[in-house]
Design a protein around this nucleic acid. Structure first.
Lengths: 205, 205
DNA sequence: GTAGTCATGTAAGAGGTTACATGATTAG
DNA sequence: CTAATCATGTAACCTCTTACATGACTAC
């Protein structure tokens, strides 16, 4: 049920089409919540039926039309309710941590490759976040600029604080994962020096 | 497709029933991968049909029977393959980070309550991890002890390293989340001092 | 004209959640 | 005898993934 709240939240910036939302969900929003277009279009229609959104057809070129969605009073109320209510913590499901926990079934070199891939993955994320912060400082984040234009000035500080805070969390997470993987690489070196054996370095019994 | 690899990995310790697996998945395994019994029993049967597991009925008391599953050579091969192959990174979906990103729709006090709940959640997790490490040091982790009994000695170091490494990752994560939430609380205090306003502290327009 | 972008769907299937359901065994 | 634990399922439903599908608009 979080996709709908993500959609409501994005739509508080300004009315937009499903296509616009798809783009945002492929861009900055994807850092905290991602969704494919198939899910977005169907959820938008559902929310329209439930009165959380208002969709109206507008012209697009000569013949075509597109559907502009805006958040309704009910939608905003639902967003406020969700933002103020407690959200249960989903059960842990971390493939890469699971894999690490049973690393003994890999080989020394394959295990190293996994950790190096882990580092590469989170380094790339970190670079994207750093880019985002730069863009934010220079007012180049479209969604945020639109939001500031449409929301009352007295809320601007809170809006900027929330975005920065959330992304800082993802940055800390990325740094933590890189550090963790580096410690794993060191532990593997130590294992190798001590002559320990992984199952993948031995033939199957 | 990771549930099956988690099951294979746990079953390398020793043959066990679905019920035993359910218990482990409610216990230590849940820290990296959790699954309800409904999913576990059906997946076990599927894996049996595919030849990854071998299930045989054994007596249980006078009348009843239970099914003991053991990993087959094919199952072990699949586990080794998975452990050595690259695993794609799933799309981010973090409700609490999403909520934080749109905190401006909450109220100062509700936002504080969210962050305090975040801290409590990860503190509890951290305590559980600390308990686990203590249990591990004193050889009180059943699944691990069984595993060491059945696996060749030359692999013991690697086995212990892998478990400790994975759980250290979850501990770092928990510490990071606590620190993050504390920074958020400080940022909210700062917002309040500066007279900033959140939407939830104002009536709906 | 044609390639890239804008724009919006449907549908099958996998994975996960929650609830319903049942019965034997064991320890007190 | 009775409560807790052992033991194993089924089923409806929701969410998400992946693939299929279509057509208009715009810049070159």
């Amino acid at each position: 049920m979080s996709l709908r709240h993500a959609l409501l939240a994005v739509l508080t910036a300004e009315p937009m089409t499903g296509y616009d939302l798809v783009k945002y969900f492929d861009g900055t929003v994807a850092f905290v919540w991602s969704a494919p277009h198939s899910q977005i279009y169907t959820e938008l229609r559902k929310m329209e039926h439930e009165g959380l959104l208002d969709g109206k057809l507008v012209a697009r070129g000569e013949r075509a039309e597109k559907r502009l969605f805006s958040i309704t009073a009910g939608g905003e109320a639902e967003l406020r309710r969700w933002e103020s209510a407690a959200t249960p913590y989903p059960a842990e499901r971390s493939v890469h941590r699971l894999k690490a926990a049973y690393m003994e079934w890999s080989s020394l070199n394959a295990a190293r490759a996994q950790l190096q891939a882990h580092i590469r993955h989170y380094r790339r994320r970190l670079e994207n976040f750093e880019q985002y912060f730069e863009d934010m400082a220079e007012h180049r984040v479209q969604l945020l600029s639109r939001r500031l234009e449409t929301q009352p000035v007295e809320r601007h500080k809170a809006i900027e604080m929330a975005k920065a805070f959330a992304f800082k969390g993802e940055m800390s997470r990325a740094r933590m994962e890189i550090e963790w993987a580096n410690e794993g690489l060191a532990a593997l070196d130590e294992l190798e020096r001590s002559g320990a054996v992984l199952a993948g370095d031995q033939p199957p019994a």
